[in-house]
Design a protein around this nucleic acid. Structure first.
Lengths: 147, 147
DNA sequence: TAGAAACCCAATAAAACTGATAAGGAATAA
DNA sequence: TTATTCCTTATCAGTTTTATTGGGTTTCTA
């Protein structure tokens, strides 16, 4: 029932990109410094995010990452689904239901309902919401990465 | 974001006990056969459930397990909390928020909200609900363990 | 056309967790 | 007293997580 750090990092990485991309592509070195994640590890985490069309990498000098869509069009669910796969709390096939038919398994609706509830929650939060909140927080403290 | 089998097994084990305890304590051998979990593994899973006062073990011949409360007073959340610990999707202390103050972490409310939503969902489902559903299912098929 | 900046890709590995097994001990009913 | 059943602790292989490392490839700029 724990979220892996990969999922959390994925959200934070895209949040960083969202916040700083107005100055051009955000290099992973900046993200690393900003979020306290090693630059090498960021690469690994960002691969599925690119594959799912959430961000793009731009090579060469002055390269970096930028979002592939508007932050308001990227939900936390999109990010977690890309990073951790479809949101299913249990992979419940026939074998999993103690040999019963899956439609006869009394606990199955519990896990399906939980997955659904969670998905709906994450779908309501967009990257823009997080950017706004981060900006709000920053008003009361010093900005870290500017221009 | 996956539920471990331990949590699922815990629910199924208590559900088995709830359903069959009217004939006296339910021995783990029966639970094992019923749920397709090895008897040795059941022991391990059931320990925290006893510690949290959800069921009790009765030793000796004709022994077994029975619930410590009414099934209507045991929620799925109670079971999962006993089995897997408090429902926190991330253990977010200061260090976890990329060095920021935890009240300045823009993603923290996401994980806290998800944990809360999930907890509220599981709190709404009692063991009695599951017993009723299982009984309902059983009407359309053969009972497996009777008297 | 260097050459440096930056992303891309594959292999490796330590640590933690999961899922399970096993053996002996303690209590209880018949 | 004996069979049954729970109780406790140890062990352990396999998988997943969380990275690290080391080499490529592309592209901008001078």
């Amino acid at each position: 029932m724990k979220m892996s750090t990969k999922g959390r990092y994925a959200v934070r990485i895209l949040l960083s990109i969202a916040r700083y991309q107005k100055n051009g592509p955000v290099p992973k070195k900046i993200i690393a410094a900003e979020e306290g994640i090693s630059a090498d590890y960021i690469e690994q985490i960002i691969v599925p995010l690119k594959n799912d069309g959430l961000c793009v990498g731009i090579r060469g000098v002055k390269g970096g990452f930028k979002l592939a869509k508007d932050p308001a069009d990227i939900t936390v669910y999109d990010i977690l689904a890309a990073s951790e796969g479809v949101m299913k709390m249990v992979d419940c096939d026939q074998l999993d239901c103690a040999g019963r038919d899956k439609n006869q398994c009394a606990t199955r609706p519990v896990w399906e309902g939980a997955s659904r509830v969670l998905q709906e929650f994450f779908e309501k939060i967009t990257l823009k919401d997080l950017v706004d909140r981060a900006t709000e927080y920053e008003k009361t403290s010093a900005a870290s990465y500017s221009i």
